[in-house]
């Protein structure tokens, strides 16, 4: 084994890179969650008529603009030069996922708010319409939205998918971080987002029919997520020395325990089992499994953010 010394000791990179922390993990988690909510809401909107929808479900989409704002706030906190944040919006840099992300985030607001408004139960809407009646544009917008509700639903699905994938691609394009550097990360984060989205909804007072439906959907998401995890690992295992070295962080490396217990066992297998049992016995999904899913979803981002920085090309080469 070679003996290596370096005089470099730059905070944030040495001895182990630590540029991104909880804020970013939380942002990625909330981004995925919002993506999930938007897609599911969009699908619901394209699906059955409003009459069959529970009040909770009809209000659900409002969570999107709120949660994304929370997420962006945390992202903003992570910036070393927050007052230069406006710089994100003076350019669109095709090669930079983060640049795309910044613009996608902007898209989320109009799209989700409009649809959320259309989905909102009539009594609430009536109340606000007459309160805001002093500005005619408001009615105009409402009518426009109601006329284009299908388009809006599709837009939400599209924006949601874009958002979900972007949260993964943000990390996935970093060639310097073999653990992140995988095409699977985009889909993986999207599916995980959908799963957390569904779980989030299950926390509210939905109709049994809706719960059962989401439960089944979520099982699908979890299975897909497991498949993508497998793909991701296989990709690394069959990759170069660096990739294999990176994979080691989950097999004996410092993140082994956390990953297998929090993400795989607690966050995926347990809820899958739970949902499956509920399904077999025809019982209505409760709130335990969704909570596990949410924990797992957050753990996935948290662990990935740190493990990815730990397993840089150079670092792996040195170990």
């Amino acid at each position: 084994m070679n003996e290596i010394t370096t005089t470099r000791a730059n905070h944030l990179i040495d001895p182990v890179m630590g540029v991104w922390h909880g804020e970013v993990a939380l942002y990625l988690f909330l981004g995925g969650l919002v993506a999930g909510i938007m897609v599911l809401a969009g699908l619901a909107m394209l699906g059955k008529p409003a009459t069959e929808r529970s009040r909770a479900a009809s209000l659900m989409l409002w969570a999107a603009p709120v949660l994304i704002s929370v997420g962006m706030f945390f992202l903003w906190l992570d910036l070393e030069h927050p007052f230069n944040a406006y710089r994100f919006y003076l350019v669109l840099r095709a090669s930079s996922p983060m640049s795309w992300g910044a613009w996608i985030l902007l898209l989320i607001y109009p799209v989700s708010i409009l649809l959320a408004w259309v989905m909102t139960p009539d009594d609430v809407r009536a109340h606000w319409r007459q309160r805001l009646s002093f500005m005619p544009q408001f009615d105009a917008i409402t009518e426009w939205a109601e006329r284009n509700v299908r388009a809006l639903a599709i837009l939400n699905i599209v924006a949601g998918v874009a958002l979900g994938i972007y949260t993964g691609v943000l990390l996935g394009t970093m060639a310097a971080r073999p653990l992140w550097n995988s095409a699977v990360l985009g889909p993986l984060f999207l599916v995980s987002g959908l799963s957390t989205g569904a779980a989030f909804m299950l926390l509210y007072r939905l109709k049994d029919a809706e719960r059962v439906q989401l439960g089944v959907l979520d099982m699908g998401f979890i299975v897909a997520e497991l498949a993508l995890l497998a793909l991701w690992f296989i990709g690394m295992a069959s990759g170069g020395a660096a990739a294999r070295g990176a994979l080691a962080v989950f097999f004996g490396g410092p993140y082994t325990a956390a990953f297998w217990t929090l993400v795989v066992a607690l966050g995926l297998l347990a809820p899958l089992a739970g949902e499956w049992i509920e399904h077999r016995h025809g019982t209505v999904p409760g709130r335990v499994t969704p909570i596990l899913v949410l924990i797992g979803g957050f753990a996935l981002r948290w662990i990935l953010v740190y493990a990815g920085q730990y397993a840089g090309l150079a670092e792996v080469a040195m170990r």
Partner: peptide, 27 residues
């Protein structure tokens, strides 16, 4: 607007989402 945008960070910047390139010699 810019100064405000600056100091409001992301939120403020969002207002300017549409701003297209090459104003104010900021480039």
């Amino acid at each position: 607007e810019f100064i405000r945008a600056g100091s409001y960070g992301v939120a403020g910047a969002a207002l300017l989402g549409g701003v297209s390139s090459n104003w104010y010699g900021l480039y």
